[in-house]
Amino acid sequence: MAQIQENASPTKGGKRRVKKMQTQLDMTPMVDLAFLLLTFFMLTTTFSKLHFMGLQMPVPDGETAVREENALTVVLGAEDKVHYFFGFPGDEPPVATTDFSANGIRKVLGSGRVRNNHKMVVLIKATQESRYKNLVDILDEVRITATKRYALAELQGEDKELLKTKIGG
């Protein structure tokens, strides 16, 4: 705790001097209290919970049980381009190209054809020329538009042929 030490000053010439008092504080209990409070607040604090997006991968070598009218295929291409078509490549659907802007793929995912069909599945496929950033961007767009059913799928040969014939890429 606090101690008061008296320093006796010698007298000079018969005059008596006032005693100087020197105080010394022991800081150990205050440091102990600070660490106890710090420990208490660290242990009783609720940490923020991680928010994550659930992703279900398709079963390997499994058949997709999606009907043609319930499929939207999104193909990530080179130079941040997004190609999409409704249905499957074997049916020769019309292919459209867009980008990641608000009037791009977000508008397609938020359209009535996708939003009103509760069985709609968005199949996301990436080409070799696409970047990892494109995959993250499309997953962000899926989350923004609150699309319930989507899957990452492998780009098949018939998808590549359809893109070559329709887009020329």
Score class of each variant (00 low, 15 high):
R115M: 05
H118G: 00
Q128D: 12
M120V: 01
T97F: 10
L123D: 00
G112M: 06
N103P: 02
G110A: 05
L135N: 02
K125M: 10
L123S: 05
G110N: 10
R131P: 03
H118N: 07
Y132T: 10
N134S: 13
S111H: 11
D137V: 07
V108F: 05
E141P: 02
R131A: 08
R143F: 10
P93S: 08
R113D: 02
I144H: 15
V121G: 05
T147S: 07
E129I: 05
I144W: 15
T98H: 07
R113S: 04
G112D: 09
R131N: 10
R106P: 02
Q128K: 14
I105G: 00
R113E: 05
K125W: 10
V136K: 11
L109Q: 00
T145S: 06
F100H: 03
R143Q: 09
T127Y: 04
S130T: 11
N116E: 11
E129Q: 14
V121K: 04
I124R: 05
Q128R: 15
E129D: 09
E141T: 13
N134T: 00
L139Q: 13
P93E: 11
T98C: 08
M120N: 01
N116R: 12
L135Q: 08
D99H: 14
G112T: 08
T98V: 13
L109V: 07
R113G: 02
D91I: 15
V121E: 07
V121L: 05
D137F: 15
V136C: 06
V122M: 03
N116M: 11
L123G: 06
I138F: 06
V95H: 01
L135A: 08
V136D: 06
A96L: 12
L135W: 02
K107Q: 14
V136S: 11
T98F: 05
G104S: 04
P93F: 09
T97H: 08
V108Y: 07
Q128I: 14
